[in-house]
Design a protein around this nucleic acid. Sequence first.
DNA 1: TTACTTTTGTTAACAGTGTTATTAATTTTA
DNA 2: TAAAATTAATAACACTGTTAACAAAAGTAA
Lengths: 201, 201
Amino acid sequence: MGIAERKIRQKEEFRTSILEAAWLQVLTDGWQSLSIRKIADAIEYSIPVIYNHFENKEAILLEFTKEGFQKLADTLQQVKDQHTEPAVQLEAMAYAYWDFAFDHKEYYQLMFGLGIPACDRVNKIIEMKTMTMVMISTIQQALLQSKNKDADYYLKYHTYFSILHGLVSIQMIEKTGRPGAEKKLILKDAISGFITSLIGS
Amino acid sequence: MGIAERKIRQKEEFRTSILEAAWLQVLTDGWQSLSIRKIADAIEYSIPVIYNHFENKEAILLEFTKEGFQKLADTLQQVKDQHTEPAVQLEAMAYAYWDFAFDHKEYYQLMFGLGIPACDRVNKIIEMKTMTMVMISTIQQALLQSKNKDADYYLKYHTYFSILHGLVSIQMIEKTGRPGAEKKLILKDAISGFITSLIGS
DNA sequence: TTACTTTTGTTAACAGTGTTATTAATTTTA
DNA sequence: TAAAATTAATAACACTGTTAACAAAAGTAA
């Protein structure tokens, strides 16, 4: 009775062929351009067959998101295993994280819901410069009063801004609704760490 | 010849009525749900009139993005002005930034292209836990060897993760394409600051 | 006021999107 | 071979952004 097995195998092959066609499209034109019709076209089947293998489009994207997290986790573990000192591990993992994000941009954007729309938008915005200027000037003033007078203020601004945005967006992804007061501890922790390293111990 | 002025004024009013209807929709169901047709419906005009005032949908969203950055910049400036010490200013601005993000969630998501899709997705992903675990365990090991043995490892993990994600996503927003090696300095800077504060000076 | 021009608004359509009910073809089972 | 079950395709629904073609209103000049 190998028939049942063959059927399961064929079904599995069909499934992966859908995913392959979808991923090719994502790599080619970004995940915003993915459509059921394009997948159907690529695999040379009609549209509804795709719904026999995936509940909806979201389910297909979910598959890639899972893949992405799996790959990232593997990478981090692998990098970690190359060192013994925890502090060194954390540093190496940070670099690996960075590399993963830009080596697998599509995965990363999918994993964290980064829409490209803002990319085109943000660059046209002079108003953003106002915010940037407020931050930079304060950083500069802080550096003037510190022991690190020759530190790169632009770099420090980027760090400051990134920490803030990272905290906020991770929080927004993890939980909908306003975070409790205890979540501000994370902010307090990160910022005090930054300021300490900015001013000089 | 007040006619020309009245016309300009009417045009301006029309424009703001479009923006008001659009923003109401954004506040009600999120900016993903905004559509030209819904705006047209709300202002009780036909669809193409909207294109007399805005080149396309993106232009409307761009307007809100600008508004958001303006509001944020104003808030930060205002908070900064309440203090004199730069270090204190930076801390206060950080809290203000956080509050702005969650008080004006729709603005923030628009400003930084945060798509909600991932929110629903990420929570269904066990694979993410794998990554989380790698990070957390390393943080724990680092803390064990440090002077801060009683530090909150979960908080520290969040900080670590947020810094990484913040750096990456800011970089992705600002520039498309792979960042140069010099950008890794920001990463190096932020992470070394974190590790220092983690291990204990 | 009348004739002409310009502006403004509407209808209807195009080209897409995700999703699904219905129907036809195929394949497996009895 | 006939009935049952699976599998695929057609066609449609309800949306989306955008625009060409046309009608109505408003402003201008004689």
